[in-house]
Design a protein around this nucleic acid. Sequence first.
DNA 1: TACTGTTTTAGTACCAGGTTCTAAATAGAT
DNA 2: ATCTATTTAGAACCTGGTACTAAAACAGTA
Lengths: 198, 198
Amino acid sequence: MPLIERLPKKQRHQHLLKLIEANPFVTDRELTRELKVSIQTIRLDRMELGIPELRERMKQMAEHSYDQVRSLPLDEVVGEVVDLQLDKSGISIFEIREEHVFSRTHIARGHYVFAQANSLAVALIDDEIALTASADIRFLRQVHLGEKCIAKAYVRSMNGQKGKAKVEVFTYVGEEMVFQGNFVIYRSTGEDNIEGGM
Amino acid sequence: MPLIERLPKKQRHQHLLKLIEANPFVTDRELTRELKVSIQTIRLDRMELGIPELRERMKQMAEHSYDQVRSLPLDEVVGEVVDLQLDKSGISIFEIREEHVFSRTHIARGHYVFAQANSLAVALIDDEIALTASADIRFLRQVHLGEKCIAKAYVRSMNGQKGKAKVEVFTYVGEEMVFQGNFVIYRSTGEDNIEGGM
DNA sequence: TACTGTTTTAGTACCAGGTTCTAAATAGAT
DNA sequence: ATCTATTTAGAACCTGGTACTAAAACAGTA
């Protein structure tokens, strides 16, 4: 019953975990070359650590991405739309996370706040294709990591079927307004009447 | 040489394509039950249609999602800055890919084009912290899947150390201007002199 | 030194989900 | 009937494993 000096195994386990995390596509055989142990040891280690075999790892990744892709169409909108009255008004919520901020300052990058507002403005328009033509925006104060942005959008005008819609968006964190934007959205009812737009 | 009535095969091919698209995780054996043909026929069909085996499909999906995750952290700046003269001008290139477009129309979502311009405008300012205060933007024409956006930014004015910088950005696809924006960027030289900004 | 227990290695059988190849059965048109 | 395309069958082989048995190598200790 060796009490001391049983570290190499634990160290190998750590090493193994790192190797597989670094490259989930590595086979057991490739790992033997890296860790200088037999393939059986690799397999025992994987069992102890609960790491599934290569094919299972790939399957899980594939299923994961498939689920994501399935839900991506919802991602045409940045932020979660919690209320939507087409051609009238809408509300969306967007939480600022690690990936949305400048790592140094933890302040949200402007384009995410813009993206939320833009997405909501576009979603509001009940039309085949709705694209942003122009926007006039103000960032009123910085938004920080962890803050929840609540964007409220209102359609201010709608001219005809081949026209532009004006949408005003206000984004709040709590009581404070952090962003304000006036969007002009092109609404094409199928025709090629767009001169510009996104 | 059967000239007529050779449709069942083509129909089966169509059916097969749809089944695999609907569920990429289906095995050949499962497909035999759906299509009422032998497993060899399924395999011949897959070959003719160039559809890889289940494991290869899963591997490709896994690699795809892995690549996506890998490339996300590079996103502090949207687009690749290819030229940068701090406080003067800069150029960045951004290729519109699948994940940047509306899946239905293949037109780029506006906020990506904005993000490229915004990122470049911020990168241009040689300061500790640079945040977008406001912007006035125009989307001049749609940008489509596969197009390369070349954004050129110029600093138009700079007032003092605690001031705002005005940056003008033009984005082109080839010769065509697709976006134009006037950004006001706050440059804080460490102090807390920002009233707003991203 | 011999005994004990852990750890590592080796080897075999087996599995899923295929590929590759050869060959036979079947269908359809002429 | 015959010719050709299509479909089916079967066997050998592949990868990257699992499951299991068994032997060796190591360590600590009595």
